[in-house]
C-alpha cells in the first residue's frame, strides 16, 4: 500500500471515529436551552413593524400581575437575540416596552423575530424596547417594571428612533376580539418566523360558535 493509500485509510478511520464522537456527543447532550445571558438588557431589540390595534371586546393581559384588560395596543414585530427567547421552562427574560410588559405571541428562537402585543397607548418614541431579567411575567408588577426600566436605561437602552418608528408603522387595525388579533399575529409569525408552523396552525384553529 502506498503512502496515499495509508493516508486514505487513516482519514477513513478518523472520519469513522469522528462520526462516533459526534454520535456520542449527540446522544449525551441533546438540545439543552442556552443559559440566559447576564447582559440581557444590553442585547438589542430592533423594531421592524408596528401596528396599532383596537378591539370591540377587551381581553386580559396576563403578562403582569395587575392583569389589566386590553382593548387597544400595539402589534409589533421585533428583531431580537435568539438566546433571549429560546423556550425554556425556567424563568425567561421578560420583554418590555417602556413601563409595559409585552406579550410574546411566538418564541422566535430560530428566526430571531418576535411578534409581540403591547397593551394600551404606549408612546413608542418614549418607550425603550428591552429585555429585563428572567422572571415570570404573571408576577411582574408596576414597581418591578419601574425598577427594570431604570436598570435598562442605566444600561443604555433607548426608545426606537422616530425614523425607525416611521419605517415600521403601518395602518392601524380594528378587530373584534383577541381571537382575531391572534389570527393577524399568526400571519406575521408565518411571514417572519416560518419555523413555527405548528404555532400558526394552532392559532388558526377554527372557532366554534359560542353559546
Amino acid at each position: 500500500m502506498n503512502s496515499m493509500g495509508k493516508i486514505g485509510l487513516a482519514a477513513l478511520f478518523a472520519s469513522v471515529l469522528a462520526t462516533g464522537v459526534t454520535a456520542f456527543v449527540r446522544m449525551s447532550q441533546d438540545g439543552a436551552p442556552p443559559p440566559v445571558p447576564a447582559d440581557v438588557m444590553q442585547r438589542s431589540v430592533r423594531l421592524l413593524l408596528a401596528q396599532r390595534f383596537t378591539l370591540d371586546e377587551a381581553y386580559v393581559h396576563w403578562w403582569r400581575k395587575e392583569q389589566p384588560r386590553v382593548a387597544a395596543g400595539w402589534l409589533l414585530v421585533l428583531e431580537v437575540d435568539k438566546d433571549l427567547v429560546y423556550p425554556r421552562q425556567m424563568k425567561e427574560p421578560v420583554l418590555y416596552a417602556g413601563r409595559e410588559t409585552a406579550e410574546r405571541v411566538n418564541f422566535g428562537h430560530e428566526s430571531g423575530r418576535v411578534i409581540a402585543l403591547v397593551p394600551g397607548d404606549v408612546d413608542l418614541a418614549r418607550a425603550p424596547l428591552f429585555f429585563g431579567q428572567a422572571a415570570l411575567p404573571e408576577e411582574v408588577d408596576a414597581a418591578w417594571i419601574e425598577a427594570e426600566l431604570a436598570a435598562a436605561l442605566r444600561a443604555g437602552a433607548t426608545p426606537p428612533s422616530q425614523a425607525e418608528i416611521e419605517a415600521a408603522q403601518i395602518e392601524p387595525l380594528h378587530l373584534a376580539d383577541q381571537y382575531n388579533l391572534f389570527l393577524r399575529a399568526a400571519d406575521l409569525i408565518e411571514e417572519h418566523s416560518p419555523q413555527e408552523a405548528d404555532l400558526v396552525s394552532g392559532l388558526r384553529a377554527p372557532r366554534i360558535d359560542r353559546r
Binding site: Y59, Q178, Y179, G202, A205, P206, I208
Partner: peptide, 13 residues
Amino acid sequence: ILYNVGISFGGQN
C-alpha cells in the same frame, strides 16, 4: 379535531 372554543387560549385538539 382541531378547533377553538372562543376563550383566551381556547385552542383545543
